[in-house]
Computed example of a mutant assay.
Amino acid sequence: MKTWLNLCSQYMGLWHDVERYPTPFQSGSCNNAFYTLGDGEVDVYNTQVLNEQLLTINGVAVPVADGKLVVSFPVQNTNLTTETDYWVLSTDYSSYSLVYSCRNVNDYQQQVTFWKLSRNKQLSTEAQGLINAVIGTVDVLSQDFFEATNQSVEACFYYPDPQPGVPVQFPGTCETNIPVVPNFTYPKDPQEGQCINHQFSAGTGTAALNFVSSNVEDQLLGSTNGQLTFYAGETGGRFTLSFISNGT
């Protein structure tokens, strides 16, 4: 078991559910838990994705002994709460955690849950080995009952709740394979050909520039002369372009 002092200072933050015993309240994918240290207790924020919707629940964990907590969650549509044991059997705080929970169904049966948690979305070989060493020491802990949690990008995708005026953000990175208009034609440059150049020189007056644009098309040199004039006013300004075309 881990001491409560270490659990407080190092265990907080995001944990990904990598594998777990089946539980009726975790039927989705991309299950995660985020722990925040409060005043003598731990705030718990659990999430999962089900049918492309993000489901969340807030709870409170209270320490009862070293490595042992009791987590309370609200019961939906009631004023009641349910309490769950949360025992940390093994962790290095920075990469993995093995968590145990149990409740007595009746005088003859117990319902057991284990979670393999990871700071990343998969356990390292070293972390898996440390967990396996603990599995052999607990009678009700068997690899046969663990089910992998889908933490893929596809499984973690969900549609956020629309909020007026709030930019829309989805989980994941931008999609690069969205179909677009085939053979889309951009507006053509009015000056076709190759070897296109523009040369500017001072014009008459302080607010004018002369320019010569040239291009080569079908081995013929074409040029366009013009003048750029700037007009300034009290509220802004504008440019006026005058063209004189000729071919040589």
Rank of each mutant, 00 (worst) to 15 (best):
G226P: 03
A207P: 03
V168P: 02
P164G: 08
E175R: 09
G236A: 01
D189Q: 10
N210I: 01
V216N: 07
R238T: 09
T240A: 11
N177K: 10
I178Q: 09
G222P: 00
G205N: 05
F211E: 04
T206N: 12
V168D: 02
F184T: 04
S201W: 09
V168Y: 07
T240P: 00
E234G: 07
R238Q: 13
R238S: 13
G226K: 02
N183V: 02
E175N: 13
T173H: 06
G172S: 15
T173F: 07
G226T: 03
N225T: 04
T176I: 06
S213Q: 10
Q219V: 11
Y231H: 11
G237D: 07
L241V: 13
G226F: 02
N210G: 00
G237I: 13
S201C: 08
V181Y: 11
P190E: 01
Q227N: 08
P182V: 03
F184K: 06
F230A: 01
Q191I: 15
N183G: 06
Q191K: 10
S223C: 15
P187S: 02
E192N: 15
T206M: 14
F184A: 13
G233H: 05
Y186V: 08
F211H: 02
D189A: 05
D189Y: 02
L209I: 08
T185N: 15
V166G: 10
Q199W: 15
P179G: 14
F170P: 07
P167S: 11
T173K: 10
Q169T: 12
G233L: 06
P164K: 09
T204H: 15
S201Y: 08
L209S: 08
D189I: 00
Q227Y: 05
P171I: 08
P179S: 15
G233R: 00
P164Y: 12
Q194S: 12
V168R: 01
N197G: 11
G226E: 06
E217G: 01
C174A: 14
T176N: 04
G233Y: 04
F170E: 08
Q194H: 06
V168S: 03
G236F: 06
H198Q: 12
Q219D: 14
G236D: 07
E192M: 09
T173Q: 07
F170Q: 08
N197V: 10
T240M: 13
V216S: 03
E217Q: 10
C174P: 04
Q219R: 11
F184L: 11
G165H: 05
Q169E: 12
S201V: 09
G237C: 07
N197F: 13
I196Q: 06
G193N: 02
C174Q: 13
A208L: 02
S201P: 00
D189L: 03
Q219N: 15
S223M: 13
T224L: 10
G203E: 01
N197H: 14
A208T: 02
A202F: 11
G193V: 00
T204V: 12
S214N: 12
T185R: 12
T235H: 04
I196T: 10
G222Q: 00
L209W: 03
S213L: 02
Q199P: 03
S201F: 04
Q169S: 15
P187H: 01
G237W: 02
Q169M: 14
